[in-house]
Amino acid sequence: MSSAVCPGSFDPITSGHLYVIERAAQRFDELVVAVTVNPYKQGLFSTEERIELIQEVTAHLPNVRVDSTTGLIVDYVRAQGMSTIVKGLRNGVDFEYEQPMAQMNREMTGCETIFMLTDPALAHVSSSLMKEVAKLGGDVERFVPAAVHKRLLAKFA
Rank of each mutant, 00 (worst) to 15 (best):
V33T: 01
V35I: 13
V35C: 02
V35W: 10
T36L: 15
V37M: 10
N38S: 05
P39D: 06
Y40V: 10
K41H: 07
G43T: 14
G43D: 14
L44A: 04
F45D: 01
F45E: 01
S46V: 10
T47Q: 15
T47S: 12
T47V: 15
E49V: 07
E49N: 04
R50T: 12
I51A: 13
I51G: 08
E52T: 12
E52R: 14
L53N: 07
I54T: 04
E56I: 06
E56Q: 14
V57W: 08
T58N: 05
T58E: 09
A59I: 01
H60L: 13
L61V: 05
N63P: 05
R65C: 01
V66F: 09
D67F: 08
T70E: 15
V74T: 12
D75K: 06
Y76R: 13
V77F: 10
A79Y: 15
A79F: 05
Q80F: 01
G81F: 11
G81A: 07
S83C: 04
T84N: 02
T84D: 00
I85Q: 03
I85N: 02
V86M: 10
N91A: 00
G92Y: 14
G92N: 15
V93I: 08
F95M: 06
F95C: 03
E96K: 03
Y97Q: 02
Q99C: 09
P100K: 13
A102M: 10
A102W: 03
A102N: 09
Q103D: 01
Q103N: 06
Q103G: 00
Q103C: 05
M104T: 10
N105Y: 08
N105H: 10
R106T: 14
R106A: 15
R106N: 12
R106V: 04
T109I: 05
T109H: 08
C111P: 00
C111N: 08
C111K: 09
E112N: 09
E112Q: 13
T113M: 11
T113D: 00
I114L: 15
I114C: 00
F115H: 02
M116R: 08
M116I: 11
L117R: 00
L117E: 04
L117S: 02
T118H: 06
T118E: 03
T118Q: 02
